[in-house]
Nucleic acid binder design. Structure first.
Length: 305
DNA sequence: CGAGTTTGACCCGCGC
DNA sequence: GCGCGGGTCAAACTCG
């Protein structure tokens, strides 16, 4: 009757606008979902691409290492024939026959030195050569940091305790000495020094292998797990060297798209910025570097030898 | 109060 | 033998 003869205009409009708004919201959510799915696809693609890159790098590293092994074997054969026994104690290794055992014991955590000590005799050329081969693995990690950042900290996921700092002759920048403090008996040491040529590059030299897992990769609320990452990799004569650029600026033009952005574009940009900030995080990137180098070490043919 | 950092001293290998 | 330089020690200090 009258009730139905006079339907509220507002009510009807409200219903109409409400459903339209719902539809608009639905479309927005749909757009957002499409955008996120596209972003996910893009990330998956990038992940796939980086995995392929990593596989290629591993293959290259294996080839280079085998070549290095061949070269070392050839060089050893050549020097053993020409050198003879003329210089039994010429190339000494710290912690070897000349290093006092009580010093090693006083140091507390010099298991690598002790291992060498136990495996070498005094003044025997053959043993010296075995000792050289038993030398702890040395890995270099070059990290590009902000030049204004004066700290000698390379966040690689492990827990380090600084035990010394020294200004060396060939480099005005001080060199910091670290020991792995995560496991008491872990023999790994790390030296960190700014590159003499490029102050923005931190060169971290790792000696030895960790006898424990990676602390930051253990499950936990604050663990920063690498999934993808940048990093051009080069192999140095002393071992694999991972180079990271932590100061890379965001892609040009990204900051220029601020005016008149559609919501889904904004969402996309937000996602990009999140991904960008994640990969720009030094801890994230350094952990990634360690994970990559750790994977190299595990895949190394002479590892655990 | 414990863990980490700083820093001067010390040790030791090596070249001269 | 001596001095230099790299590596390490350890007491003092800082920080959370």
């Amino acid at each position: 009757m009258t009730l139905f003869d006079h339907p509220s205009l507002d009510l009807g409009l409200n219903i109409g606008t409400s459903s339209m708004a719902k539809k608009r919201d639905y479309n927005l959510v749909k757009d957002e979902k499409i955008a996120l799915e596209a972003e996910l696809d893009r990330m998956n693609e990038e992940n796939k691409r980086l995995n392929e890159l990593l596989a290629a790098m591993q293959a290259n590293y294996a080839v280079l290492q085998s070549r290095l092994a061949e070269f070392m074997a050839a060089a050893a054969a050549a020097t053993s024939t020409s050198e003879g026994r003329s210089s039994p104690g010429r190339k000494r290794i710290k912690g070897g026959g000349g290093e006092s055992a009580d010093r090693a014991a006083a140091g507390g955590s010099t298991s690598s030195a002790e291992e060498r000590e136990s495996s070498c005799g005094r003044g025997r050329v053959v043993m010296m050569r075995e000792e050289e081969e038993a030398r702890p693995r040395t890995t270099k990690l070059c990290v590009r940091t902000d030049p204004s950042d004066a700290s000698l900290v390379v966040k690689d996921g492990y827990q380090w305790r600084k035990y010394g700092q020294k200004v060396t002759r060939d480099n005005p920048c001080p060199r910091a000495y670290y020991r792995c403090s995560f496991a008491p008996a872990c023999p790994v040491k790390k030296k960190v020094q700014r590159s003499a040529g490029d102050r923005s590059v931190l060169v971290a030299t790792y000696e030895g292998d960790h006898n424990h897992g990676m602390p930051s990769l253990a499950p936990g609320p604050s663990s920063d797990h690498p999934a993808t990452g940048p990093s051009p990799v080069s192999v140095h004569p002393s071992g694999p060297t991972v180079t990271l650029d932590l100061t890379r600026p965001r892609p040009a033009g990204q900051d220029q798209r601020t005016a008149a952005e559609s919501p889904d574009r904004f969402q996309r940009r937000l996602a990009e910025q999140m991904a960008s900030s994640l990969t720009k995080d030094p801890t994230f990137t350094a952990a990634l570097a360690t994970a990559i180098s750790g994977r190299f070490l595990r895949l190394s043919p002479d590892h655990n030898s």
